[in-house]
Amino acid sequence: MSKNKKQPAPAPERAETEPTIAAGGGSAWPFVLLGVILFGCFLHVENTGGAFRADVYQAGMKTPPPQADEPPEVKAFKRGAQLYAAGCAGCHQATGLGSAPLNFPPLAGSEWVLREKPDRLVRIILNAIEGPITVKQVAYDNNAMLQFKDIYSDEDIAAIATFVRGNAEWGNSFGFVTPQQVKVIRDASASMGSQKWRAETLAPIP
């Protein structure tokens, strides 16, 4: 719209003009004000913005509350505890002591579990074990154990192994098992198919 628009077209009853725009104008104050407020805004966001992290929910904090930053071992251990409760505790019991009358061997203090390397444990979880076996001077023979290779991922099995080997309540105190370790063993024993281990076949494994 412009100033010279004085309705050239015929508009009989009422020659209404549309609004026009005055010349000139333009002020700097909005931008000055904007700058001043912007400065305050930066302070505000700096103080309450949680450093723009997606995992900080509490205004005034720069890092998430500690439990979110747990070391991977602790995370794996906790996850392993859940998986153990779901997948193993039915037979080996929540206490890890198994049940001699039901023919389930213990995991707590078991010499099959507490070895320098987790190689036997991971193999047993992947392909299961059957046939006669002696654990803590007691003989068992039961082919009920399930194969977990198609049920749990490498991460899951590593977590279970970490939990079983490192469970202080059971008196076990070995370290962290990584998913990479599990993967190597899974690949190495792929040729076994769905055949289970036996105490004899497992003996050469360190």
Partner: peptide
């Protein structure tokens, strides 16, 4: 509530900043 803290923070800042354009328009 229960969203990453930067969202309400930035939005609160914008709530204040928006005064500038509203004021500019109304002053005109």
């Amino acid at each position: 509530a229960a969203v990453p803290a930067w969202i309400p923070s930035v939005s609160g800042a914008a709530n204040v900043l928006v005064i500038v354009p509203v004021l500019a328009l109304l002053v005109s």
